[in-house]
Design a binder for these strands. Structure first.
Length: 268
DNA sequence: AACTTAATCAACCGCTCCGCT
DNA sequence: AAGCGGAGCGGTTGATTAAGT
């Protein structure tokens, strides 16, 4: 007796989203805002699962998304945050404006992991690899070969190895500081701003109202403008911006866009 | 040019969390 | 307090593209 599926599997489309579907979703959310995701497919006329709609929106269609590869600064930030938070991608993403958890997770798995290994750093514990091997050896000899279970425990995330009652920083000795990340990690102002609160609202969930103007920065990372973010949409050959239904934006949204346009011009 | 392998990333799946009743 | 449903998260998969032979 499993739980009910999140949506009726029958007649629900899967796989890559088409331009037409994107258009419908964007149109719906721009006019109605983000509401009950379960209801979105029906209301938007999509044969998709609500979950799929949410994912598509948050990972790809959201206008506040920064596209393209992570910059060096962002990468360093991800490494540092990962050493503190472990695989909590959404938390990490929350501290990188315009980036999604999926994007960061993918980037971690494809780029950063390899980079760290190459640098001799364990991407899981952020300890030097040789030190890790030594520790593992010591552990095995200490426990007299307890077996796979204990080894599995060792492979848990840094967060899991830390006392949850305090910040990971306090309990996890991040050896990252002994390598090229040193400089970055010692940037106290940046780190303190990151850790001032448990959940600093770097990204306002209500993006559709509080979209930062171009040229603004957050922790030294420049935020993209609405225009920059929408440029890729405009580049789509299959349809223009009007096809997305942007012509039916309500007054608030139009005002927001106008304000942003003005701000961009001022910056330029 | 054809094929194989590697890399990348969008999307899915199953689980947990959280708010509501 | 318990149960339910929706949202969100993290791990994984699979399609596509790029690079190498």
């Amino acid at each position: 007796m499993g739980r009910q599926p999140c949506c009726d599997k029958l007649g629900v489309k899967k796989g890559p989203w088409t331009a037409e579907e994107d258009k419908k979703l964007i149109n719906f959310i721009l006019t109605n805002g983000q509401c009950c995701w379960r209801a979105v497919p029906k209301l938007a006329g999509l044969r998709r699962c609500g979950k799929s709609c949410r994912l598509r929106w948050t990972n790809y269609l959201r206008p506040d998304l920064k596209r393209g590869l992570l910059s060096e600064a962002e990468e360093q930030l991800v490494i540092d945050l990962h050493s503190r938070l472990g695989n909590r991608w959404s938390k990490i993403a929350g501290r990188l404006p315009g980036r999604t958890d999926n994007e960061i997770k993918n980037h971690w798995n494809t780029h950063i992991k390899k980079k760290l290994i190459k640098m001799g750093i364990d991407p899981v514990t952020h300890e030097p690899l040789n030190k890790e091997a030594e520790a593992a050896e010591n552990h095995i000899s200490e426990t007299d070969g307890v077996g796979a279970d204990s080894l599995e425990d060792n492979s848990s995330t840094p967060t899991e190895n830390c006392d949850n009652s305090s910040t990971p920083t306090e309990n996890c000795s991040s050896s990252v500081g002994s390598n090229s990340l040193d400089k970055f990690c010692n940037d106290e102002s940046l780190l303190s701003s990151l850790w001032m609160n448990d959940e600093p609202p770097l990204i306002d969930a209500s993006w559709d109202i509080n979209i930062p103007a171009g040229g603004e920065t957050c922790n030294g990372i420049s935020l993209p403008s609405w225009e920059e973010n929408c440029a890729w949409l405009l580049d789509c050959q299959d349809f223009g911006i009007n096809d997305f239904g942007l012509d039916c934006l309500n007054d608030i949204e139009l005002n927001t866009m106008n304000t942003l346009e003005m701000a961009d011009k001022t910056v330029a």
